[in-house]
């Protein structure tokens, strides 16, 4: 079964590669190819179980694709230009901006995301009637998804003071709200 899964996944990716090399987009060919890749999950999970099967499907995909990338490599010999050597001083404004971003994306965003994720986890938990451990894990996983997104948003531009103060308000006020809820019997 593992062999069938590998053949199916490889054939699907090979078809995608073949279609990719052609100048015109081929919808049918591509759809069949992606379907083959997707269907290969079945023999994978049949051979090694559902959890391992999904993992193997994910693990095989980059390895097969990289083989195709290596096959498709182009080589253009060109000498690298000699680059001048400079002693670089970063501009002071840039350093300050980076430090401000670090503080906002670090402890402030961390706390704000903790509050939002835990609150969202609690609300979802109450709505769906989840047990304590599921609520807690949901909150933690939401936090792990939310914090990177907020860090990304903060790094995209110079932080406006309105957004920064909003985050700061949530970070400082949020824990008090959560603590207050816990005092009134709302708990995880």
């Amino acid at each position: 079964m593992i062999f069938i899964a590998l053949i199916l996944e490889s054939a699907g990716l090979l078809l995608i590669y073949k279609s990719w090399r052609k100048p015109q987009r081929r919808v049918v060919e591509n759809s069949i190819a992606w379907l083959m890749v997707l269907v290969s999950i079945w023999p994978w999970q049949d051979a090694v179980g559902l959890e391992f099967g999904i993992c193997f499907w994910f693990l095989a995909m980059p390895v097969i694709s990289w083989v195709l990338v290596v096959i498709n490599r182009e080589y253009r010999k060109m000498d690298a230009p000699i680059q001048p050597r400079n002693w670089v001083w970063p501009a002071r404004a840039q350093v300050v901006q980076n430090i401000v971003n670090l503080v906002i994306a670090g402890p402030i965003a961390f706390m704000a995301c903790y509050v939002c994720a835990t609150g969202l986890g609690m609300a979802t938990g109450y709505a769906l009637g989840l047990v304590e451990v599921n609520q807690m894990l949901l909150g933690f996983i939401l936090f792990l998804l939310l914090w990177p997104v907020v860090i990304y948003r903060i790094s995209t531009k110079a932080m406006r003071w309105q957004s920064a103060s909003g985050l700061l308000l949530v970070a400082l006020g949020g824990p008090a709200v959560l603590y207050g809820f816990s005092l009134y019997g709302f708990n995880l």
């Binding site: 694709s65 990338v69 490599r73 253009r76 010999k77 060109m78 990177p148 997104v149 990304y152």
Partner: peptide, 23 residues
């Protein structure tokens, strides 16, 4: 965050899916 920003900073994700220009 890097994975997210990396994927969003790649406008030709499919166009370059198998391209490796060496040299």
């Amino acid at each position: 965050s890097l994975t997210l920003s990396g994927l969003l900073s790649h406008p030709s994700l499919f166009k370059d899916a198998f391209r490796w220009r060496m040299g």
